[in-house]
Nucleic acid binder design. Sequence first.
DNA 1: CATGAATGAGTTTTCATTCAT
DNA 2: TATGAATGAAAACTCATTCAT
Lengths: 211, 211, 211, 211
Amino acid sequence: MLKKGEQTKEHILICAEKAFSRKGYYESQVSDISKLAQIAKGTIYQYFRNKESLYISLIEKYVVEWENKVALNLNDFMGQGISQDYARAYLRHRIAKTMAFFAENQDRANIILRMSSGLNDVIEHVVRIFEDSVMKAIVDDIKIGQQFGHISSSLNIDFAGNVILGGVLRISYFYFVLKKQNYNIHDMDSLTDEMVKVIENTLNMYQPEKN
Amino acid sequence: MLKKGEQTKEHILICAEKAFSRKGYYESQVSDISKLAQIAKGTIYQYFRNKESLYISLIEKYVVEWENKVALNLNDFMGQGISQDYARAYLRHRIAKTMAFFAENQDRANIILRMSSGLNDVIEHVVRIFEDSVMKAIVDDIKIGQQFGHISSSLNIDFAGNVILGGVLRISYFYFVLKKQNYNIHDMDSLTDEMVKVIENTLNMYQPEKN
Amino acid sequence: MLKKGEQTKEHILICAEKAFSRKGYYESQVSDISKLAQIAKGTIYQYFRNKESLYISLIEKYVVEWENKVALNLNDFMGQGISQDYARAYLRHRIAKTMAFFAENQDRANIILRMSSGLNDVIEHVVRIFEDSVMKAIVDDIKIGQQFGHISSSLNIDFAGNVILGGVLRISYFYFVLKKQNYNIHDMDSLTDEMVKVIENTLNMYQPEKN
Amino acid sequence: MLKKGEQTKEHILICAEKAFSRKGYYESQVSDISKLAQIAKGTIYQYFRNKESLYISLIEKYVVEWENKVALNLNDFMGQGISQDYARAYLRHRIAKTMAFFAENQDRANIILRMSSGLNDVIEHVVRIFEDSVMKAIVDDIKIGQQFGHISSSLNIDFAGNVILGGVLRISYFYFVLKKQNYNIHDMDSLTDEMVKVIENTLNMYQPEKN
DNA sequence: CATGAATGAGTTTTCATTCAT
DNA sequence: TATGAATGAAAACTCATTCAT
């Protein structure tokens, strides 16, 4: 059981989560949080140096929570049947836990996943337009592929489309924004080839009805 | 050729792009943009109703630019050899153009892809910690898979890792934040199965050294 | 003639002088100044980084003003009679100008001379009690000296008392607070001797009715 | 021996003295004092109505302490030799005790003598610039006087300069800020004359090497 | 069209003070 | 008495937006 101070701090974090989830970092005001928490503004500053540090505490909490949820002793999966089976079980565990991590807490998911978090509603909407355009192109392409028989008509289009969109945007982000890897023009070609391969696999192209 | 007014408006958009790229929407001030553009603050308001509408104009421009870049008449790819070939060529075209779209304009990529756009440096850094944690887990798992021989040792780990991260985050975002699709608990299982399948394909698991 | 911007800045400085003069630095609020100046609070921040820098600007202006007032070419006093005469004239000029500097601008004098400037009225009053106690002791001593005939009965008691109080406090401040000079216990004795000598001179003790 | 309550009150006063000495009234926070005293903030309010009253108590304590230190029965000095001698001894006693009063307690001296007490470091520094400017002018003048032979070259410049500065500032303060005395323009002249006379005495001008 | 000084509503943040334990 | 968590009024400061020139 937490003592008074710890309780209040926890309470503030939970209310801050609600506030940031609804309106993002910049559009949320400290007074919103204090109202949600039904405490005085000053009380928040007893526990957090400022608004920024409150937000940071929240994210840091998420990192710990995710690690606790996902982590599992590798040994638990070993020594049980053939290695391929437990490798798949292990992978499944990771994926299931990560998705559950987002599914079980709406506010947390909003904060972590809202890709252009912190923008106000009007802007958020326009930012979505871009993603929707790209998504629409992907979906249309899949449908054409299905008409031509390259892609199984039983494919879950939404699912496949989002995996592809996520992959392309993330790859672009990694190589062109973060630029942790230097790449040259030639790499662009092989990057594209790799991406095409992944997408073909995802779509099971050219192998319709194979399973 | 653009007239004076159009020129100034275009100039403002380019400078706004620089500013928003560096500091995101909220941390960029109208005065930053006017300084970059070497014009008076008031002039910006001659062309844009307010800061928000300036940002929106930018994103809307991006949608058009991307569509122009990516769009291509399907006919161009048809009537040339077997349909499988032009389907692949078409997919390749889409991917190549989209990645080039990001690669060729750093500021644009920053604005569209910076997944927690608009947050200040300190916060941005902590948000990255979360993604880095997830990424690290994926990379570690891939390495273990390679040690056990389930995954080809020639796999580009950064590439595969980012595709997977992008896919998982986007799927979570789509189903748990946007929630355009209702899902029930049973769906969570099949969602996970689908995701596992995609990842196995991406990693070419169980078929190491096959190619 | 000053242009618009310079005029406003000057106007703010003058109003800040009034405000600081009345209530000191801490008790004066930026909104007090803006009200006095009949401008918006924000306007003040167009010209001064913050309240502190506004106060500093004021003091820096005073330094320049005093220097301009007091400074005089030494040559102006030379070549006119014997050197003792122009030395006295020069000294007189310095003193007269410095005192006029304070006498001619009430607010400026308040800000520079209010020895415990910035304290609120209640506290200011108590701080005065200390000075008044010391002053009273000095005045009483002078009166006793007059009764005993050591001190001329025509002495301006207020004047002499304040000179002595100012001297003693300043010497204490210089040696015991600023401590630019190291001193040892022995110095205390000679310091006292020096001080006694100055006071005796000021009081013309032992030489009553001599002039 | 003090009882518990009295002890605590005394302890708080001593810690408040430290705090106010370091940062002045406004920049010192009640929490600073409670931390120094290693007691809870609330405890301070058991003994003092508020921060202001704590400060006032301190100053009032100083008045008593100074009076105790300086006061001495006039009779002690009488009946012992000629009156001139004990008059001088008496004056010496007053001066010595007052200076010791400041020298023996650094914090007390800081609080009472810091002439612009309560201002923060940055501002304090600029306020010093004014005093330094005036002091520099005085010192320079004294040096010129020494070159011309009006002033003894053995004069302690720092001492004389500070006595003069203290005297001039105090006189200005008394007549132009406190204005307990009305004065008219003609008085300015005689005020100046008096001041010049005092300074000449202090500097022993025109009588170099006379002693 | 262009300017940039002026605006003031809106935010964050501080800190002396209170009061239930 | 002593505590320290909670308070909230009050202050500094910001910055998008306006408008007279």
